[in-house]
Design a protein around this nucleic acid. Sequence first.
DNA 1: ACCTGAACACCGTTCAAGT
DNA 2: ACCTGAACACCGTTCAAGT
Lengths: 212, 212
Amino acid sequence: MQLTRERIITAAAELIEREGPDAVSMRRIAAQLGSGVMALYNHVPSKAAVLDGVADHVLSSIEYTPDPGASWEEQVRAQARAFRQMARAHPRCMMVVVSRPVDSAALRSAGFGGEEAIRVVRSFVAYIVGSLLREVGVSPGLEPTRPLTQDPASLAADRPIHLDPAEFPQVISLSTELLDRDFDADFEFGLDLLVRAVADRRPVKELAPRNA
Amino acid sequence: MQLTRERIITAAAELIEREGPDAVSMRRIAAQLGSGVMALYNHVPSKAAVLDGVADHVLSSIEYTPDPGASWEEQVRAQARAFRQMARAHPRCMMVVVSRPVDSAALRSAGFGGEEAIRVVRSFVAYIVGSLLREVGVSPGLEPTRPLTQDPASLAADRPIHLDPAEFPQVISLSTELLDRDFDADFEFGLDLLVRAVADRRPVKELAPRNA
DNA sequence: ACCTGAACACCGTTCAAGT
DNA sequence: ACCTGAACACCGTTCAAGT
């Protein structure tokens, strides 16, 4: 099959997702595509360019279509959640995304990039990125390489809590669930803080008249 | 001079700050300390451990002493600013910090780690980390290695805007200042959003009685 | 206990050569 | 235009050997 920039970037993203950012190398990508290493350089100028491509690829996979009927609060929440879904779908690519400039065109095309409230947007993006780094980033990149297998047990081993899954299968699945809930709640909590803060900053919609 | 874990970590941090995370290697660290590569392994188990050490070292350099007289709003702001100062002092180490678990003991000892309001703290940390990644992280790590020199011109070249400093010295210093102001204002803006949001969530200090 | 140096299995990228 | 393979200057880490 023909070698293309796109196939190279996709292969790199898959490699990162399977074995972490450290595992990605031009040689491994080439091997995966069944070609020699140097063949890659006909479609891509450097490894850095491949990683740029991965960041862009992942960012543009955000699925968000604005709903003009919704309030701005709900639109902001929807965007934040779309971003988060992307991060959860490509957790190990997040470090790569984050190591490049964030205000990319891809991000803008996903609806992040208003005109009048750039600072508000930046605050949200900062919050979202920071949240997802914590959520996704229990030492995601610079650690010793993982084994090639990707069973649930080794995924659980990425958590700070270390238990033998053979001995405590139910404890582990439970703790994973609890952690997930925790992340959900944490994310929504902070998101809500920001949404309310911004709402309070707007010209107040006079519900009940005050005295004075 | 004697080789120690501390000297190794300090050397690594300096190397990262001078040439970026990509430039750090066991061999370079050893060369800097005037020893053979393998001598390092008597004090440190692996490169990953060195990077863990760097993250901890940088995190524990946060200078914050709580002022019990100040309001909680001001205390939170002071902590956030202390964190930010650290990030600006070690900008290129930030990616290393961020690639490890953030809720470390070092962070807690810097005053981040309340009991009753863990989620609030997490929201702030998420915001701060996300902000500083943007501020500090114009492709901080995975880029082609920089030349060894660290003059202001090459620092300016890290910005997205590319001008020849020989031709436009004043434009560059101006734009740097503008960017700095921008970062300051952005950071304070979002910080203020969060502080107000949290304040509004507290049992309101009844200033003026309402009708109803 | 601490350091050395050779060796191994990797890197990214250049270059000359092939089709 | 696209691919190859040898080569170069690097990696992290193991191991056997020295003090």
